[in-house]
Amino acid sequence: MSEPMSALNGAVSDGFVSIREIGPLGMVTLRCKADVKALPKAIKAAVGTGLPALRRVVVEGDRACGWMSPDEYLLVMPYKAVPDALAAVAKTMGKEHHLAVDVSDARAVFRIEGAKAEEVLAKLSPVDFARLEPGELRRTRAAQVAAAFWKEGEGYTLVCFRSVARYVFDLLATSAKLGSELY
């Protein structure tokens, strides 16, 4: 079997911040109501984190769990860890009504790194970064497509759909061009 290939094969662009496509990254969409007892255990078993609060992402090393909607969570992990994570969720949830599905290949992931990373995103997303709370996962749009991002280390991690990876990469690279800093 071939090695899995991310949408842009790790494209990079340097402007006043740097843009990197990372991945492939393991991702699972877990749909389940927040009050289901087995849910925290399932998340713990799959990615080792706690249950994230409203609009939060909990990052633990190379794994994370993000709150996507009142009945949807995003589990992030190394690409090869997905089958085990799915099995762990299935086992822990048992007969509880839920849906866990591998979406690793449906996504593209970017790192936007540098002191002014926010300024690149502020050109694309109608988000008030000064009011973004620590550990907040924001689902919004980047120009004309859906995107989600959160602050992680010296920069942001941004997730979008795989088919528009090139569009989003070009958007980010254009927005990060030298000389176009906002502040």
Binding site: L54, R55, S69, P70, P126, R138, R139, T140, R141
Partner: peptide, 10 residues
């Protein structure tokens, strides 16, 4: 549901 003050384009 999520508390975001969303503008119409979202």
């Amino acid at each position: 549901y999520c508390g975001v003050k969303a503008e119409e384009t979202e």
